[in-house]
Simulated assay, not measured.
Amino acid sequence: MTFTATVTPVAPGAGVPTGTVTFIIGGSGGGTFVQPLVGGTATLSLSTLGVGTNAVVVLYGGDTNFLPSTGTDTHTVNPGPAATTTTLTSSANPSVFGQPVTYTATVTPNPPATGTPTGSVTFVISGTGGGTFTQPLTGGTATFITSGPGTGSHTVTATYNGDTNFATSTSAPLTQVVNPANSRTTISSNPNPSEAGTPVDFVAFVEAIPPGDGTPTGTVTFTLTNGVDTLTASPTVDTNGFAFL
């Protein structure tokens, strides 16, 4: 909230008072604050006042041309948490499988409330590899980083869980699209060259291309041909990304 003190001369005096104004505000979160007088007006913004009625005393200190003066008022802070708004953003959308994505939730009080909400935010991600994850709120912001969701569309929401002064709120749903990651396959053989009738080992290695990550699964199809005869085989990729023939 903003307190405004206006200092005006009493007739027949005229002109614009200068100097400073001292705000004395009682109650929880109050105190004594000295503000400059500009164009006859001084302002003080506070977001620390607790619930209840606060007595306000304003002291104008005077200047060369104007005598000191005093004003009084009261200010009431109603009980109950102030309403908030939670917004959610994604660092990469669409993303690819295995790519780390940072979700950021920003919680702001709805006017006229001011201040910085505290507590935690719960992120909910639908679909394979999703889940429910609660992160602390720092400076009004909470982040969550994950590379777990599978390919497809996922609905993501962020819910602020509230604190003593601020009410809960949930973001609008965000649709995160996860596309398949690009892969790279390399092959080697041993021995090479080889003699007729000698066993030859062929090894294929399959890996994700950044920003994708993870170990591909499934099979690799080897095709061997001399222009006349063709041999194909499809061994399974192991847990390290290798397939052997």
Rank of each mutant, 00 (worst) to 15 (best):
P36H: 06
F205Q: 11
T43C: 09
H154Y: 13
T22N: 11
V10P: 04
T225F: 02
T141H: 13
V58C: 05
A196I: 15
G152L: 02
G218L: 03
N165V: 15
G127P: 02
T175P: 09
D163W: 00
M1C: 12
F133L: 12
T4S: 10
P199C: 11
A204Y: 01
N65V: 01
G127M: 08
L88D: 05
T102N: 09
G212T: 03
Q99Y: 09
T41S: 12
A55F: 12
T164R: 11
T223Q: 13
T215A: 06
D63A: 05
T239G: 13
A196T: 15
N182K: 14
A14M: 04
G26I: 01
T114I: 12
T132A: 13
A42C: 07
P211N: 07
S69P: 11
V21R: 00
F23Y: 08
S169F: 11
D63F: 04
A196H: 15
T86P: 05
N161W: 04
F205G: 13
S171L: 06
V7M: 11
A42T: 09
A113H: 10
G98D: 05
G98F: 04
T106P: 11
T20Y: 02
P12G: 10
G61Y: 01
Y160P: 07
T175D: 15
T157D: 07
G71K: 02
V228H: 06
A14F: 09
N93I: 00
S189N: 15
V101P: 00
V107S: 08
I25M: 06
G152M: 09
T230C: 00
S120D: 14
A196C: 07
T230H: 04
T114M: 10
G130W: 04
G162T: 13
V206F: 07
T43A: 12
F202L: 11
T146V: 11
F3K: 03
I25C: 00
T159N: 12
T84F: 04
D63W: 04
G50C: 04
V203I: 15
A83F: 10
V220N: 09
V77C: 03
V121E: 00
G241F: 06
A55L: 15
N93M: 09
I209C: 03
F123I: 03
T104C: 05
P81T: 07
T53I: 07
G140M: 12
T32N: 04
F205S: 15
F205M: 08
S194Q: 08
G61E: 12
E207R: 14
G26E: 07
T118P: 09
V58R: 01
T215W: 10
T64K: 13
F133N: 07
V177N: 14
G80C: 12
E207P: 01
T86V: 09
Y160N: 08
S28N: 09
G61F: 06
A11V: 11
N161P: 00
T64H: 09
T70E: 10
T151Y: 07
G71A: 12
T76C: 04
N78L: 14
V124N: 15
T128V: 15
A5F: 02
T185E: 15
V10G: 00
V10L: 10
T223L: 06
T20I: 05
T104W: 12
T170E: 01
P109V: 02
